[in-house]
Amino acid sequence: MIVVLAIDALEHTLVEGFNCKNLMQEFHGKTDISEFSEPRTMVLWSSFMTGKNMEEEVMALGDEGMWHTKFDIKNTFFDQFKDPKIIDLPGFNYIREQHDKERILLKQFFDAQSEDEKKSIRTEYNNHAFEHHRKIKQEFIDALNEDYDFLLGYFSIADVIGHLNFGNRAMMKMIYKDMDEIAETIKNNYIVLSDHGMDKIGMFGDHSNYGFWSSSVKDFGNPKITDFAEIIKENQQVK
């Protein structure tokens, strides 16, 4: 089984800072996403799975519409596998109700006038994200014990929580350590990949303009996110 741990907004400096050994693996580094005008989640994952820069195509759907992008498996490298399992990947099978609600709460947070209101919305927003995380984690761990030839688990927690809490280092550390523990449960070779990292703006978080990758097999240098379709295909042939 080839495993990809796809983690939204996993920040290179924090993975190192928190000494997350299982996320770092033997080789790790930053990805080059400078070809994109902005580090947009939906654009980046779409480009990853198709192996092509999908910025224009995804952006054409508009700010709201882009969140519902759905590529057919035929247009992705997942098609190379007999029995792939993809969990919650943006642009492929992103769970709409879950993530729509995240954005609604995010909007409510910024629209809210009072501190109290903001605080209560943030709590709801965080709880909503954590609940989803627990489900995805379980689904991913269960899938590791199945006979799929390809497994991709997408985890949004670092991004979703990060947007409203990135300034809380202790909280982020707990999330990174949890992701590190998830990586520890993978017994096969795996690739860790993020679309972009995160920068701190006070208590909040903004997307940083590089992503993160790691591998136990090979040093990929400073790859583009679109290189991974090919990298993973090659990996499959070696096996």
């Binding site: 609940e131 995380h133 280092r169 202790a170 707990m174 999330i175």
Partner: peptide, 21 residues
């Protein structure tokens, strides 16, 4: 609460991080 949110029992190792915060 945070540990439970992540689906685990409380971990005392995080106390120092939160105090440093």
């Amino acid at each position: 609460h945070l540990c439970e949110s992540l689906g685990k029992d409380i971990e005392f190792g995080y106390i120092m991080d939160h105090l440093e915060e």
